[in-house]
């Protein structure tokens, strides 16, 4: 991680030969060599577009359209992914569901990442009692399996999509805090930080301008990986009936609705599962690709 930091903060040292090798350019050069990560990125971009444009794309109203003559009908030209047990168009619901899943995933990781990073930075930089308190709290949170912690929080707060975001974000906090604290501990002993301090920079400047940028690459990687986990946790909570309430077309809730008809109409359960599966897989692969591209050690081999 030390190397990453040096390189990111002082890119000039890497400038040799033809084009100017900015960090971004360097990153892209390494990233595009990985076809799997590229495919994952493409999928994520497409999914995001789909989610943003969902209201204009869906062929049917995902909540209020129903056709009782086609209950559980399989995929067809008018209903691309078939019809669910309540007569609704599954394709429309999955597309609208992408919006919800991405939004809950993004919001919860952003929230957890923000809180965790702040705590980690402060803990690593100041150490002492503050560090001990923060890290012990993180240990306690780590002791619970993620889904159990989220379940407990939702049970206390009550079931709704907003509470799911809060619950899922809570279990992202300790992971980010620990990650960032570790980096901070290393970075703050670096010579360049000492140099900055010796010319009289405030703690705030040192933290935000000089240490934070050094941890950004690991935060980005972890953020992406965490997105996948968070989406699956949010979907699990909805599957258990604690998250999105019917008729909201959330993927986990759709799976729950499909349970009764899974045997006689497998497509009802299959498509929401595939949606969750591919989305989570894509975020994880993307995270892997980002890590490989951002880790200079790998490049030197």
């Amino acid at each position: 991680m030390t190397d990453t930091a040096t390189e990111l903060v002082s890119p000039v040292s890497a400038t040799t030969g033809e084009a100017v090798r900015t960090p971004l350019r360097e990153f892209w050069r390494r990233f595009r060599r990985q076809p799997v990560a590229l495919a994952a990125l493409t999928f994520v971009v497409l999914l995001t577009l789909l989610a943003v444009l969902a209201p204009w794309i869906v062929p049917f109203d995902p909540e209020n359209y129903f056709d009782y003559d086609q209950l559980n009908a399989g995929p067809s030209w008018s209903h691309w992914l078939g019809v669910d047990p309540l007569g609704r168009d599954i394709f429309s619901r999955i597309v609208m569901g992408a919006r919800i899943s991405l939004a809950t995933g993004l919001a919860s990781v952003a929230l957890g990442g923000l809180v965790g990073t702040t705590l980690g930075l402060l803990a690593g930089y100041y150490e002492g009692w503050w560090d001990r308190i923060v890290m012990r709290i993180c240990d306690v949170l780590f002791a619970f399996p993620g889904i159990l912690l989220a379940l407990g929080i939702v049970a206390i707060l009550g079931g709704s999509l907003f509470n799911v975001v809060v619950a899922v974000s809570v279990f992202s906090v300790p992971a980010f805090a620990r990650l960032v604290r570790g980096n901070t501990l290393v970075l703050k002993r670096m010579t360049y930080v000492e140099a900055v301090r010796s010319i009289g920079a405030s703690d705030w400047t040192i933290l935000v301008r000089h240490i934070l940028p050094g941890t950004v690459s690991s935060i980005v990687v972890y953020f992406t990986m965490r997105l996948g986990t968070s989406i699956i946790t949010a979907a699990s909570l909805s599957f258990l009936g604690l998250g999105a309430q019917p008729p909201t077309p959330e993927w986990g809730a759709m799976l729950n609705d499909a349970r009764a008809d899974m045997v006689n109409a497998p497509h009802v359960a299959l498509f929401p599962s595939l949606a969750i599966f591919f989305t989570v897989l894509a975020f994880n692969l993307l995270g892997d690709g980002l890590r490989d591209a951002l880790d200079p050690k790998i490049d030197r081999k």
């Binding site: 909540e63 209020n64 129903f66 047990p85 309540l86 008729p247 609705d257 349970r259 009764a260």
Partner: peptide
């Protein structure tokens, strides 16, 4: 039961109309 779950979802759908 799944039957009851379907029934209330159906009623929700109908009342929304």
């Amino acid at each position: 039961t799944t039957t009851a779950q379907k029934a209330i979802q159906f009623l929700q759908q109908q009342l929304a109309q």
